[in-house]
Structure formats: C-alpha cells, structure tokens
Design a binder for these strands. Structure first.
Lengths: 122, 122
DNA sequence: TAAACATATGAACACATATACATATGTTCA
DNA sequence: TGAACATATGTATATGTGTTCATATGTTTA
C-alpha cells in the first residue's frame, strides 16, 4: 500500500512513498510561515548577534557598552542591532544621545535555552 | 555610580556603564558554547532545511520523498541532510538502497515551535 | 555480472552577509 | 553656534553558503 511509483520531473528518481509525501505536504505550514521562521533562526545564527542577545539577558545596554564587551567596533554592533531590531528581538529607548537596547520578547530566552539544551546533550 | 568612563581601544567611544559591562561579561557563557549555539541556529536558518525538518515531524522519509515534496533535486536535499545530520538534528536508517531520515532529537520540535510563537505574535 | 537505481560527494558558480572604514545624523554642552 | 560625542548608515570587500552538474558509491535484480 502506498507504494505506487510516480515519477516527478523535479527529481531524477521516482517517488517511493506517495502516501508519506502527500501526508507531509498536507501538514506543512504555509510557505511564508516557513520562510519567516528560517529568517528568524538566521538572525540567531551568528556569533555576534547571539552574544548581543546573551548580554541583554542581564540588562539593557547602550551600543558603546556592547561594543566594549565584545571588543568590536561601534559600527559592527550598530549594524547587527539593526538586524535584531528588524527581527523584533530587541527594542530601544533613547536618552539624549545614548541609545539603550533591550530584549523585545520573552521568547528570545526560551528559544536560546532550547538551543542550549540541544547543545549540552551530546 | 558605575558611571566611570573608561576608554577601550577596540571601540572609538568611551564606555559609559562599566558595571553593566562587567556584570554582562561575568554572566556570559563560554565562547565555545555561544559559537556552538550560533552554529545550531544557523542550521535552522535556511528555508530548505526548515522544510525538511518540518516534513520529518510527520514521519520518516527517504531522500527521494523529500526531494519530490520540496520540488528540488536529489543532490540538493542530500547536501542539506548532511548538514542536518552533522548538527545531530536528523538520524537515518538504511533499508537496501533506500535511506530513511528521521528526527534525532525531541528538542527540534520545541525549538521550531518557540520560533513559531515569535513569528505569529506580531 | 551488468544494468538500474537511490544516495552521496566533489567542484564550480552565484549570491548572501559580516565587518571595517568613512561619513552622516542628531544630541549635549560650553 | 560650534565642538564633542553616541549612534546610524552607505559602501566595499572578504568570506561563507546553497544549488547545480557531473560523477562516485553501494545495493538490488534480471
């Protein structure tokens, strides 16, 4: 059962499990959702940005603080904060010329921690 | 308090909140842990790989099935499965010439779902 | 054994991206 | 108002990466 062979032009080989494929297809979220999800994880997938998020777990920080902490120049940090901001992972408040960044979302730490669990378990 | 200014050569500006910086520094996990974490999320940060993982939530699948499902050629899928395998996100079993892939870790879905929560909330 | 098939792998190419440098913006304070 | 300063942003560059094509590996079956 479900072993009917169907050749599909996009793949050089024939499909072995038609049932499995169509069931998986039905259970897949929308294309856009999966795209957004990948974009989100992409933001987490950089050492500098992970470090920034990690630092902000402790408290809000200004750009200069973060640059000093990570021993990187202000421009690099500012560029990365922009990415984090666009992903709605951090928010900011201005106090004069100083801009303080903080986490925008309580899920950030949960995603972070879930990742940690996977890392530690090896 | 904690407002002593210290100039650090790596940053053109002066540090405003010395206390905040050193507290954050103390709370940071090891460099290697953060690196590994970024590497893990990097794996999640690709549409093709997210789709593969998502498909495997339903059931194990062979390479051909996945290729057909995603309308991509077998080589591309195989390359991505390799990345997922190296990150210990999928495992495989061989049955003759067919290789069945499945999730290697119960955390995968939890990380995935945490990401979804963040996406949906906007 | 040879053909057919599923999968893996190496190389090449196109494209994305992180950082550095230079500079612009906007705020404070003398 | 102008100097000093924190931050943002545009551009260039080096590095990383996803996909494709060609081919290798390994298994089944005629």
């Amino acid at each position: 059962m479900g072993e009917k062979k169907v050749s599909i032009e996009s793949c050089s080989c024939s499909v072995i499990h038609e049932d499995t494929v169509s069931k998986a297809r039905d259970s897949m979220p929308e294309e856009e959702t999966l795209y957004d999800l990948a974009e989100l994880f992409k933001v987490f997938g950089d050492t500098t940005r992970i470090k920034i998020l990690c630092a902000l777990f402790e408290s809000e920080m200004c750009v200069c603080d973060i640059a000093a902490l990570l021993s990187m120049n202000q421009s690099a940090i500012s560029h990365q904060l922009r990415v984090l901001k666009q992903a709605r992972l951090v928010k900011y408040r201005k106090e004069g010329k100083v801009v303080y960044y903080s986490l925008d979302d309580e899920h950030v730490k949960q995603i972070f921690d879930q990742g940690l669990v996977h890392i530690k378990e090896r």
